[in-house]
């Protein structure tokens, strides 16, 4: 049975879809079978980031409503054999998701895939609660700023009360993925520092993804950043996060600190 991961945040625009695609591609490069599921019915984006927007025939809502079989709706990635996408519908809205339908789809996906990664929509309404409902593990995507941190805190509360795991009295495994982190701005006090965020949210850290133009460039060419430029700083951070998700114990390095040291040496030389 595969593991179901929900990538969630509460707030929009913090990098859920980017992180879903990047983690999915990173895990698939370890030769594990991965499916990324877009739950943002009506505002789908994951197909664009995965570069599969022109190959969508059937979607999640079609499968739930019985208009298509699950294998018909799954899109295999052109670059990675083991990476699949289940797109959301762009023409419907989230009312088309039913709890029973979602449960059936997730249970079926769990049988075929090692990892089922659900890209949650923003907000705390139906779409978001259904995306998290069947998860075994939650990846909470947070930007180092107060509104994102507070929304993440709210989502963690919901993960601990509204999910199947919570209702069965089990503990939901939760990880913090800090995205768009800029060490120089955090140092200046324009952004929250890593320790501040960890202190407020008090869940284990999965990784810190540095703010980078590589992320935007990758989305625009329709590739997860871990496929587009595997040597870039955000891609390396996502690879490490994926290894931690798979159970490896790796220390988390705060991006920018190394560069800070290098630039110090550099300036000294220049002087």
């Amino acid at each position: 049975m595969g593991k179901v991961i929900v990538v969630t945040s509460g707030k929009g625009g913090v990098g859920k879809t980017t992180s879903t695609a990047a983690l999915g591609a990173a895990l698939a490069q370890r030769n594990e079978k991965v499916v990324v599921v877009d739950f943002d019915v009506g505002l789908r984006n994951l197909d664009l980031v995965m570069g599969a927007e022109r190959r969508v025939v059937y979607d999640l809502v079609n499968v739930i409503q019985g208009d298509a079989k699950l294998p018909q709706a799954l899109i295999r990635d052109k670059r990675l054999e083991t990476l699949f996408l289940l797109p959301a519908s762009q023409t419907r809205d989230k009312d088309n998701l039913t709890p029973e339908g979602v449960e059936q789809v997730i249970n079926e996906l769990k049988r075929y895939f090692d990892w089922v990664i659900c890209d949650s929509p923003a907000g705390i309404e139906r779409g978001a609660t259904l995306a998290m409902r069947h998860a075994d593990v939650a990846v909470v995507v947070t930007n180092p700023e107060v509104s994102s941190v507070r929304d993440s805190d709210r989502i963690i509360g919901l993960l601990d009360s509204k999910t199947l795991k919570a209702e069965r009295g089990e503990r939901m495994e939760k990880h913090l993925l800090l995205t768009r982190y800029d060490a120089t701005r955090a140092e200046r006090g324009d952004m929250l520092k890593v320790d501040d965020v960890l202190e407020i949210l008090s869940i284990p850290l999965l990784g810190i993804i540095p703010e980078s133009t590589d992320v935007l460039r990758a989305s625009n060419i329709g590739a997860p950043v871990t496929l587009a430029d595997a040597r870039s700083a955000p891609a390396m951070a996502y690879f490490e996060a994926a290894r931690r998700l798979a159970g490896e114990a790796l220390p988390v390095s705060i991006p920018g600190e190394k560069r800070g040291l290098l630039s110090k040496i550099f300036t000294r030389r220049a002087a």
Partner: peptide, 8 residues
């Protein structure tokens, strides 16, 4: 025994 989260 747990943190009280935003909204709770």
């Amino acid at each position: 025994r747990e943190p009280v989260r935003s909204g709770q």
